[in-house]
Amino acid sequence: MTTLSPSRWRRILPDANGWRALPLLAVVLIVFDYSLGGLLTQSVKGSDGLTLQHFEEAWTTNAYLHVFVDTLRVSLLSTALCVLLGYPLAYWMRGLDKRFRAMVLALVLMTFWVSILVRTYAWIVVLGNAGLVNRLLLGTGLIHEPLTLLYSEFGVTIGMANVLLPFLVLPLLTAMLRIDDRLLHAAASLGASRFAIFWRVFFPLSLPALGSCVLLLFMLSLGAYFIPAVLGGGKVPLVGNLLDTLINETSEWALAAAISTMLLGFSLGVFWVYLRLNRMTETKL
């Protein structure tokens, strides 16, 4: 029987600072893991004991599958829109003078000072049939009748991207500011063009942070509830809205728990794929 050496014990047991985090860990286990365990238990609980019928119902019902597919599509589109808007914005902010960068950063942070409720309802004024976009297009003669921008996947995607965009810009900008400019200068001194410097030096260095931001945004959009409820008008139900209906209207707690567990498993699978891709990228670099 082998015994652990003192050095092995020191690696396993927390240090002095680690012991101080144990109360916080206990709170997390009680508040989060206990409720999560209750969710998992409810999903397999039946009248005659343990059962998988709730998972079978969630998987074989076309309406639930359509809601999940719609949620996945809207989440991917809103995340992609945030990347298309947020990455160039963060890259542009990185090249600004510190004073102007602080001003632009303040404008980005101002979005957190306005309630999501207000920001979401503001899009009704912009995207409605008599909203700013339709009035502008009608006034220029590009269209002859209002476009259906509100209460559609388009409106939900725009609203979600508006809310999630700062969650990409801020951490991505922080990561970009940590990239050593001497690497870019070295590439320039070797005759690389500006595009080559960006694509072969800067972008690979910012890719890990971009991947983490994309994962964060995608996870947040999967569980969105308020934005689809307001901008979707009941016509674009996502998983969050479906769970609200099952719990508060039909009282099908077990089915809601099964769908939530499936969504949790899907999220963990996405996170596992991200870790694998990130590890492969680090190995190639």
Rank of each mutant, 00 (worst) to 15 (best):
T60F: 15
A102S: 13
T71W: 01
S115H: 06
L117P: 05
R94I: 08
A58N: 03
G86V: 10
L85A: 09
Q53I: 13
T79A: 02
G95A: 07
L109D: 02
V118F: 08
S43V: 08
T60V: 09
H66Q: 14
L89F: 11
V108T: 05
L89C: 09
L77P: 08
T71S: 10
H66T: 15
D48N: 15
F68Y: 15
W113Y: 06
M103E: 12
W113H: 05
T60I: 10
A90K: 02
T51G: 05
T79W: 02
A63F: 15
L105D: 06
Y91A: 12
V118D: 02
A63H: 15
L107F: 09
Q53P: 08
F112V: 07
F112D: 03
R94P: 06
G46F: 15
K45S: 15
M103N: 08
R94T: 05
L50V: 11
L105H: 06
L85C: 12
M103W: 15
Y91D: 13
V114I: 12
H66S: 14
Y91I: 13
V125K: 12
Y121D: 01
G46T: 09
D48E: 11
T61G: 00
R99C: 03
A90Q: 01
R73S: 06
Y91T: 10
F112S: 03
F55V: 06
H54P: 07
T51H: 02
Q53T: 15
A90E: 06
L89A: 12
W113S: 05
G46Y: 07
F100T: 15
R101W: 04
S75V: 01
F68K: 05
S78H: 00
S75L: 04
R94M: 10
G86M: 04
L109F: 07
H66D: 11
T111S: 05
E57W: 11
R99H: 11
T79R: 00
T79C: 07
V104G: 02
Q53Y: 10
T111K: 04
V69G: 09
L65W: 08
I124M: 11
L105R: 08
Y91W: 14
L109E: 04
A58E: 03
A80C: 07
A63N: 09
W123Y: 05
P88D: 03
W59P: 04
L81I: 12
L50Y: 09
L85R: 00
V74T: 02
L77I: 14
V44Q: 00
V67M: 02
D70N: 13
L50T: 12
A102H: 09
M103P: 09
S47G: 14
I124P: 03
W113T: 07
A90W: 07
H54G: 08
T71E: 01
D70M: 15
A122F: 06
L76E: 09
W59A: 13
L81V: 13
W123P: 01
V83Q: 00
D70W: 10
L96Y: 02
M103C: 10
H54S: 07
K98W: 14
A63M: 11
Q53K: 12
